[in-house]
Amino acid sequence: MDLLGFARGPALAVAVVVFVLGTVWRLWGVLSRPRMPDLSPAREGVPSNLQGALRNILRGMWPRKEFGAAPLVATVNGYVFHIGLALVFFGYAPHIAFIRRLTGLSWPALPDLVMYLAAGATIIALLLALGARLTSPVRRKISIADDWITWTITFLPVITGMAVITEPSAIVLARDHAVYRGPLAVHLLTLELLLIWFPFGKLMHAFLFAFSRGATGMRFSHRGVKL
C-alpha cells in the first residue's frame, strides 16, 4: 500500500470515525449539562422559545451596524472563506467523484473557473484572517493554540489542493487512475487531519453556533427584548 492507498483507506476510515464520534461526544457532553430553567414569567405577548431561538440564529448572521466597520469587514471576510471552502469542497468535480465513490451520492459540479476563483478568494481571506489575528492587539491578546492550529489545519487542504491541480477536471476524471499520487495523498491527508481535529478545537462552532445563539435568543425573547 502506497501513501495514497493509506490516505484513501485506513487513514480516511480513522479520520471519519474520529470526526463522527468526537463531534457526537462533544455535543452530547455539552447538551447533557444540567438545565437551569427560567421560572420567571415571560413578558406578555413574546414569541415562543423556539421562535426566539430561531430569530437570534438568523440575527447573528450579520453584525449590527451600530458596532461600526470592523465587525462588518471581519464578517464579510469570514463569509468569503466559509462560502469559498464550501464551494470548493462540494462543487469541484473531482471532489464530487470522491464523495460518490464513498457514498454513492453525487450532484452537478461547478465550472473549474468558478472553483479556481473560489479557492483563490478563500486563500486570500484566510491570509487576511491570519493577518488580523497577528496584528490586532485584541486578537493577539485572546488567541490560544487552538486558533493557530485551526487556521493551519484549515489552510492546508486548500493549498495542497491547489498544488495538485495541473489540468482541467474533465481530463482528471477521464483517467481511471491518479497521476500525481504523492501530492494527492498529501492533499487527502490534510483533509483527514482537519476531520480529526474538528471535534477538539473551534471548528466545532460549525455546529455549536446554532445552539449558542439559540440559547441567548430564548433568554432575551423571554424578556421581551427584540434582538
Partner: peptide
C-alpha cells in the same frame, strides 16, 4: 449548566 457550557464552547476568539 447547558447554556453557560454552550457559551464557553462556542467562542472563536
Amino acid at each position: 449548566g447547558v447554556t453557560a457550557s454552550l457559551h464557553m464552547e462556542s467562542c472563536v476568539r
